[in-house]
């Protein structure tokens, strides 16, 4: 399978503080790739650099064969990014928000309607989409934002901690949505500090700690290699 994204020797420091000490990984077409690691490991930093929000201090990132640093406008057309703890405009109705966001990506009114219809289906919020975002629960807002990120069928969807802060049922729904829409051809790069849920969601994972990748592979490969029964044990074992 071809790589959508190649990251080589990626470094980032904030002033004197080193956040990424040189990391490598690939995201292949049509897969869910997860960066897992504890808080402060450098997951958000990595995703923000790939989402063209931050500039790296070193290393190369290739997206669809092009240099991400040199062509941020090209990248923005093809990706979508769901930030950690993101919000939507509180005074907009859910549907208006989806239309507003779809308008940036759609080339024709038909395509825009297409995007919005898909998002409406993803959220399963029905008539609540006609009310203001400010009145939504955390789970509803997250589903709205996730639908926004997936509706345009981006080449790569970047989701930072998509389930964090959600209750069990909402988290489950979010994971199901991600799995379902990857089948339509989108690759997903996500991050989580919850290593157990990732096992069922991801095709491949990379364990990240203190700005370094400890190990990478499919969950079963990693479990076999470290003789562990779950990814938390894999992580503990790879720290040694």
């Amino acid at each position: 399978m071809e790589n959508v994204l190649t990251v080589r020797g990626l470094k980032k420091s904030y002033g004197t503080q080193m956040a990424l000490a040189g990391i490598d990984f690939d995201v292949r077409a049509g897969e869910v790739f997860a960066l897992i690691g504890p808080n402060g490991a450098g997951k958000t930093t990595t995703l923000r650099i790939i989402a063209t929000l931050l500039t790296s201090s070193g290393g190369d990132i290739t997206f669809l064969g092009r240099d991400l640093r040199k062509e941020p406008d090209f990248v923005r057309e093809k990706i979508s990014y769901l930030p950690e703890e993101a919000g939507a405009y509180k005074d907009m109705k859910g549907l208006d928000y989806l239309e507003f966001m779809a308008n940036f990506y759609a080339r024709t009114p038909e395509e825009e309607k297409d995007f919005v219809d898909r998002a409406v289906a993803i959220t399963e919020l029905g008539d609540r989409l006609k009310t203001k975002v400010g009145t939504y629960s955390k789970g509803m807002t997250r589903k709205l934002l996730l639908a926004r990120a997936l509706m345009t069928k981006p080449v790569l969807a970047i989701l930072d901690e998509p389930t964090s802060g959600l209750d069990v049922l909402n988290a489950l729904e979010v994971r199901e949505i991600v799995r379902r829409y990857v089948k339509e051809g989108t690759s997903v790069l996500l991050s989580s500090h919850n290593m157990l849920e990732i096992e069922f969601l991801s095709d491949r994972v990379a364990l990240i700690n203190k700005g370094l990748i400890l190990d990478a592979g499919t969950p079963s490969e990693l479990k076999g290699k470290h003789q562990a029964s779950n990814l938390e044990e894999v992580f503990r074992s790879s720290l040694r």
Binding site: R48, A51, T52, L53, D73, R76, E77, I79, S80, Y81, L82, P83, E85, A86, G87, A88, Y89, K90, M101, F104, Y105, L145
Partner: peptide, 14 residues
């Protein structure tokens, strides 16, 4: 404040 800036900055617009 609404945490919408990050999203807006990744949208394809100059």
């Amino acid at each position: 404040q609404n945490k919408t800036l990050e999203t807006l900055l990744t949208v394809p617009i100059r």
